[in-house]
């Protein structure tokens, strides 16, 4: 048997190992970020993606480079999957001039024009209407890109979610809504917050195609995303995907997770780690072995460590930049004064 001919979900060994690497990069990057936060190098809020790696990496594999990704404040993983430079990403977390957003955005406001990662937004659900706007541009300007927008289970309770889904169907927008249901919106458990236990009826209410997937299984996510992206690209129709997942850490680094038991989190880590599950699947299919995994792990760890080095040695933003880039028009400041 020739191993390199084996595929899973239509993906060859190289693609599968890339997917594995992406998840590991997310994992190590976030662990390094957590360390940076603990050391006081990273301030403000830091929302980690740990545990949810299969969602962002699986969806991203279904995208073309020209496709657009818009996200929430838990977006480091989405940025890494989209190809954003880990150095510039970590530098942003460190508040440095070399950060993707010049140190003015921070962890919650990652944006890379080059990679079409158009924003981490920190008002829950605000990114969904924005994504509709991007999708409208794709449609009217006849640019064949698909817009993917990520949000958590908390966002679906906001009015913006409903307004956006309705408009996406009414206007037939090429957008894929990806809900990463990690069971808690901050500390509010989904079963206490949602009137219905699945997103399916909400999708139905807006006549939208829906798929619920195991968000701990990268290949399940990939296959669902593939269908949704195809639907958007070929028929300009939106889809809602609910990826059921779990965040292994708190809502943010400031969260002592009093609302859930240590045992519950530990159980998820033990039985549902998306990286372990994926490794098991690759091993069982005879596609890759521990050596392959170790290679990826070492490489991801090294890249994450280098990102920290880069960030830590980068200069702080120039104080002059405090009032730069507020507007394109430099005369847009509050008082117009005659040039003197």
């Amino acid at each position: 048997m020739v191993i390199r001919d084996l595929t899973l979900a239509g993906l060859n060994k190289e693609q599968l190992l890339n997917l594995h690497y992406t998840m590991l990069l997310m994992r190590h990057f976030e662990e390094k970020a957590a360390e940076g936060y603990t050391l006081g190098k990273i301030g403000g809020f830091l929302h980690l993606y740990t545990g949810q790696e299969a969602v962002g990496s699986g969806v991203n594999l279904a995208l073309e480079p020209n496709d657009v990704v818009i996200s929430s404040y838990r977006e480091h993983g989405h940025a890494l999957a989209k190809g954003v430079d880990p150095n510039a990403l970590m530098a942003e977390l460190y508040g440095r001039a070399s950060g993707v957003s010049k140190g003015r955005g921070g962890s919650m406001h990652i944006f890379s024009k080059e990679h079409k990662l158009f924003g981490g937004y920190a008002i829950v659900a605000a990114q969904l209407p924005i994504a509709c706007g991007y999708a409208l541009s794709a449609k009217l300007l006849k640019e064949n890109f698909v817009t993917v927008v990520y949000f958590g289970d908390g966002a679906v309770d906001e009015g913006a979610f409903h307004e956006a889904l309705n408009l996406a169907t009414v206007w037939q927008l090429p957008v894929v809504f990806v809900c990463e249901n990690n069971l808690y919106s901050m500390g509010m458990a989904v079963e206490r917050a949602w009137a219905v236990s699945s997103l399916e009826p909400r999708a139905k209410a807006y006549a939208m195609d829906f798929e619920q997937v195991n968000g701990m299984n990268a290949l399940d996510v990939f296959q669902a995303a593939q269908k949704a992206v195809k639907r958007a690209r070929e028929t300009s129709r939106p889809t809602l995907i609910e990826a059921k997942t779990y965040r292994f850490r708190g809502h943010s680094m400031a969260d002592p997770t009093a609302y859930r038991s240590k045992e519950e989190a530990e159980q998820w880590r033990q039985t549902s780690d998306p990286i372990v599950l994926f490794e098991n699947a690759l091993r069982e299919a005879g596609i890759a072995n521990t050596e392959d995994f170790k290679k990826n792990d070492d490489r991801a760890l090294q890249i994450a460590a280098k990102a920290v080095e880069f960030a830590d040695s980068s200069p702080l933003p120039d104080l002059q930049s405090l009032t730069e880039d507020i507007m394109v028009d430099p005369t847009g400041a509050i008082a117009w004064r005659r040039p003197r």
Binding site: I130, Y134, L136, L141, L167
Partner: peptide
Amino acid sequence: GVIAGAAVGAAMSGL
């Protein structure tokens, strides 16, 4: 909300 948000997103992407 979605009128404004979609307008903003559309403006950011070329319209």
